[in-house]
C-alpha cells in the first residue's frame, strides 16, 4: 500500500479474458423482452389515446377534479361509511384470530409435524390466489347481498394475508428460546404460546392493522358486487354518471383511511 507500483503490468500475459455474458442473464433478458412484447400486443398497448382522447376524456376527469361535497351529507352515504367500518372491524378481528392459529400450523417452527405444515402452506397459497372480489361474488351467491357476505369474504381474504405473513415471521424467530422451553418439558402448544408468540406478537399485530386498512379500501370494490359498504353507494353513483359525487365519496373514504392509519400507528407504537 505504501509503495504503489508506478507502472502497470506491460504484458497481457496472465490477464484474464473478459468472461462472456452469463447464460442466466441472456435468458432473463430474452424472457423479459418476449413476455413484454406478448403483453404489449395482448393489451393492444398504445399511448396515442393520451394525445387523441385526452380532450374526450377531459370532461369526465374535470368532474372528478371538482368533487361534489354535498353528497356526503346524505344519510345513505353516512350509513355506507359506517357499514364499511363495521365490516372492516369484524372481518379483521375474526380473520386475524383464525389466521394466528393457522400461521402456527404453517411454520416449520411451530407445526406439529411436516405433514400439517405442508398441507397448511398449500391451503394458504390457494386461499391467497383468489382476489377479494372473487370471495365477494361467492359469498353474495351463498347468503345474498349485504354486509354479511362482505364480512365473510374479507375474513377469508384476511386469513390468507395474515397467516402467510405471520408464518413467515414465525419461520424467522430466534430458535434459542424455543429450545429452552422445550428443554423445560413444555408441550408443543406451550412452546408456541411462550417461545414463539411473544417473539412474533409485534409483527402479527402490525399485520392485523395492515389488513384492517386493506379492508377499508376493499369495501370500494366489494360494494360493486353487492357485498355491502360504501362501495354500493359508489357503484350507484358511477352508474348514474355522477362523477363529481363519486369523487367526493372516494376522497372521503381515503381521508378516513388516512386518519385511522395514523391512529393505528400511534396505537402500535404504544404496544411495541
Amino acid at each position: 500500500m505504501s509503495a504503489p507500483a508506478p507502472t502497470a503490468a506491460v504484458t497481457s500475459r496472465g490477464r484474464p479474458r473478459k468472461p462472456p455474458p452469463s447464460i442466466g442473464a441472456i435468458t432473463a433478458l430474452v424472457v423479459f423482452v418476449a413476455v413484454t412484447l406478448w403483453s404489449a400486443i395482448g393489451v393492444e398497448f398504445t399511448l396515442s389515446p393520451l394525445i387523441v382522447n385526452l380532450t374526450r376524456g377531459s370532461d369526465v376527469i374535470e368532474q372528478y377534479l371538482h368533487p361534489n361535497w354535498e353528497i356526503l351529507t346524505r344519510p345513505a352515504v353516512r350509513e355506507g361509511f359506517l357499514e364499511t367500518l363495521y365490516i372492516a372491524i369484524l372481518a379483521s378481528l375474526v380473520g386475524c384470530l383464525i389466521a394466528l392459529v393457522l400461521a402456527m400450523l404453517a411454520s416449520k417452527v411451530s407445526a406439529p409435524n411436516t405433514g400439517v405444515y405442508q398441507v397448511m402452506k398449500l391451503i394458504l397459497s390457494l386461499v391467497r390466489s383468489l382476489p377479494d372480489v372473487a370471495y365477494g361474488l361467492l359469498f353474495v351467491a351463498f347468503v345474498g347481498s349485504g354486509a354479511l357476505p362482505g364480512i365473510l369474504a374479507l375474513i377469508v381474504f384476511n386469513i390468507g394475508v395474515v397467516a402467510k405473513l405471520t408464518s413467515e415471521s414465525i419461520d424467522a424467530v430466534d430458535h434459542g428460546p424455543v429450545e429452552a422451553v422445550e428443554a423445560a418439558g413444555a408441550t408443543r402448544f406451550q412452546r408456541g404460546r411462550y417461545a414463539v408468540l411473544p417473539q412474533v406478537a409485534p409483527n402479527y399485530l402490525s399485520y392485523c392493522f395492515y389488513v384492517f386498512e386493506l379492508n377499508l379500501r376493499a369495501s370500494l370494490v366489494l360494494g360493486f358486487v353487492g357485498a355491502g359498504g360504501i362501495g354500493e353507494v359508489i357503484m350507484l353513483l358511477v352508474s348514474r354518471l355522477e362523477h363529481s359525487s363519486v369523487s367526493a365519496v372516494v376522497i372521503m373514504l381515503f381521508a378516513i383511511v388516512f386518519v385511522l392509519d395514523q391512529a393505528s400507528r400511534a396505537v402500535r407504537r404504544r404496544l411495541t
Binding site: 434459542g176 428460546p177 429452552a180 428443554a183 423445560a184 411462550y194 411473544p198 417473539q199
Partner: peptide
C-alpha cells in the same frame, strides 16, 4: 438447562 446464548424470550 442453561444455554450459551441464554435463550430467553426477549420481549
Amino acid at each position: 438447562m442453561i444455554f450459551q446464548s441464554f435463550n430467553l424470550v426477549n420481549r
